[in-house]
Design a protein around this nucleic acid. Structure first.
Lengths: 216, 216
DNA sequence: GTCTATATGATGATAGAC
DNA sequence: GTCTATCATCATATAGAC
């Protein structure tokens, strides 16, 4: 009746299928982010995960299966992070607060929290078409979340009435994700970057010509 | 003294070193854009260029040398396209016209005119670090062009005085380049997309709260 | 200039021992 | 669950004939 809950000698091989699987995914996400999809061999993943290349096939049927899981988890992490942050806003929050919050949460996942999210952005354009197709649903769900967020905000008068929402979403997500290629924490943290982006997208580049601005 | 200006029988092999070289570059740029850097073998490039893989080495010393040329030409094309369009503006042009013109010219090169430009955007994140380094100067020159364009405009009062120009440039270029991944001409041409982007970046998302807007 | 042939190495995946 | 060994394929690059 006594089932061996788990081996108590914790030192060397903490193993178990689930732990190994998670370790492989973690390692692969990091390597994909750093070196791209084609640039990372299964041998390299196995080495960093402390096993031989052949052993990976106990956990995953192919490199494509492995990468699909990483892609999906990456999107889900951002989606969840943004949705939770937005959900914590007070009911009366304005359009600017909404935008700032969503931008910051997206950038936090991408630039600081999740190798899965950054791997997704980094390699989505590099994977075989078949893999891209398989990972589309999760991606589209996140797109839809933004579209609904923006549509509801505009409906409540919190955004310009004439803003093209699809374009807004594409510009915003595109710009946020592109920051992965050049962001350096040393130049100012994620919060600072998110603030600059929100300023720009909220106010635009047109000189403030309002009545209180002073001289023209 | 009579030099054979070029072979007059134009039918089959129009050859000549320069023509072959250009043909290889054209084919490679298109394939890199379509399938990524690692996804395109020299065999595939050679096949589409109508020769054998080994023959490429008469024209280029390595795959890396080949791709560096493509990357640089891609940036130079966009840079030149934007600079010329901006240069054609009347002297008194305002900030909005400046922005619209630059955005449109960048998108035109990227989405319609040049496989080199789109290949650059597509594969810059996939190439070996050494190659990236070699192609940095041309890229930085284009960044500098934008920085100076924006700085001068802001200096003349054509843009918000408090806009962070580096952030502006990074957001803008990032968003424009990202459109390569989803742009479909069928949904409306480059001009339409450029117009939407310019609207958004010029006016921002804040509801127009000016005195002439009507009801709040 | 382009060909053929080949050197050399890495890759994703499989089979069977333990 | 992980190992070792190996297969078949593909890659970049080179050498020498034509």
């Amino acid at each position: 009746m006594a089932r061996p809950e788990r081996t108590t000698e914790a030192t060397k091989a903490e193993s178990g299928a689930a732990e190994s699987r998670r370790r492989i995914l973690d390692v692969a996400a990091r390597l994909f982010r750093e070196q791209g999809y084609a640039g990372v061999s299964l041998r390299a993943i196995a080495a960093e995960a402390g096993m031989q290349a052949g052993s990976l096939y106990y956990h995953f049927d192919s490199k494509e299966d492995l990468v699909v899981e990483i892609l999906d988890e990456g999107i889900r992490t951002v989606h969840q992070g943004v949705a939770e942050a937005v959900g914590r806003l007070p009911t009366g929050a304005g359009g600017e607060a909404l935008l700032r919050t969503a931008i910051l949460a997206h950038l936090r996942s991408l630039l600081r929290l999740s190798d899965y999210s950054s791997a997704n952005v980094r390699i989505f354009g590099q994977i075989p078409e078949a893999v891209r197709q398989r990972s589309l649903p999760v991606r589209q769900a996140y797109d839809r979340y933004w579209d609904e967020l923006l549509a509801e905000a505009r409906g409540r008068g919190l955004l310009r009435a004439d803003a093209d929402l699809r374009t807004t979403r594409l510009l915003l997500i595109g710009a946020l994700n592109a920051s992965l290629e050049w962001f350096e924490p040393a130049r100012g943290g994620v919060e600072r970057l998110a603030g600059h982006y929100a300023d720009l997208i909220w106010r635009g580049l047109a000189p403030a010509a309002g009545p209180a601005t002073g001289r023209e």
